[in-house]
Simulated assay, not measured.
Amino acid sequence: MELLKKIKQAYKRIRDDVFQTPLIYSNWLSDYCNGDVYLKLESEQITGSFKARGSLNKLKWIQEQNLTSLPVTASTGNHGLGFARACDLLGIKGKVFLPHNAVSSKVESIRAFDVEIQFHGDDPYTTETYARKTAEDNGWIYVSPYNDQQIIAGQGTIGIEILNTIPNPDNILATVGGGGLISGIGTYVKEQSPYSNIIGCQPENSPEMSMSVRAGKYREVESKPTLSDGSAGGFERDSITFELCQKLVDNFILISEDEIADTIRSMIKHHSKLVEGSAGVAIASLLKYPDQFADQTTVIVVCGANISQDKLQSVLCD
Rank of each mutant, 00 (worst) to 15 (best):
Y130C: 05
I160R: 00
V37P: 01
V143T: 09
T134V: 13
G200M: 06
S30Q: 06
S272K: 15
E236S: 06
T157Y: 06
V103R: 07
F97K: 01
I46K: 15
P71T: 04
S75P: 02
A305R: 10
V143L: 04
Y125C: 01
L23N: 11
H100W: 02
G200K: 07
S308L: 12
V275R: 02
I240T: 05
S183I: 00
Q20A: 14
T68S: 15
E257S: 11
S228K: 01
Y32S: 11
Q192C: 04
D114M: 00
V299R: 10
L89E: 12
V249E: 12
G91K: 02
E208D: 14
K273L: 15
K93W: 00
V213S: 08
T263P: 13
I92D: 02
R219S: 09
Y188R: 01
Q45P: 02
R265V: 15
I14A: 13
M1D: 15
K217A: 11
L244F: 11
V189M: 05
Y188H: 01
I198M: 12
N205R: 07
T157I: 07
T126I: 06
P71G: 06
S272N: 15
E108I: 03
L173E: 08
S183R: 04
K273W: 08
T21Q: 11
A282T: 10
P22D: 14
T76M: 07
G304I: 09
D295M: 08
I62S: 03
L227M: 13
Y142T: 00
T298I: 10
R111N: 10
I162T: 03
I141G: 00
K247L: 12
G277Q: 12
A215F: 04
S109A: 15
K40S: 09
E136Q: 14
L90T: 01
K247W: 01
L163K: 03
F252C: 12
I158C: 08
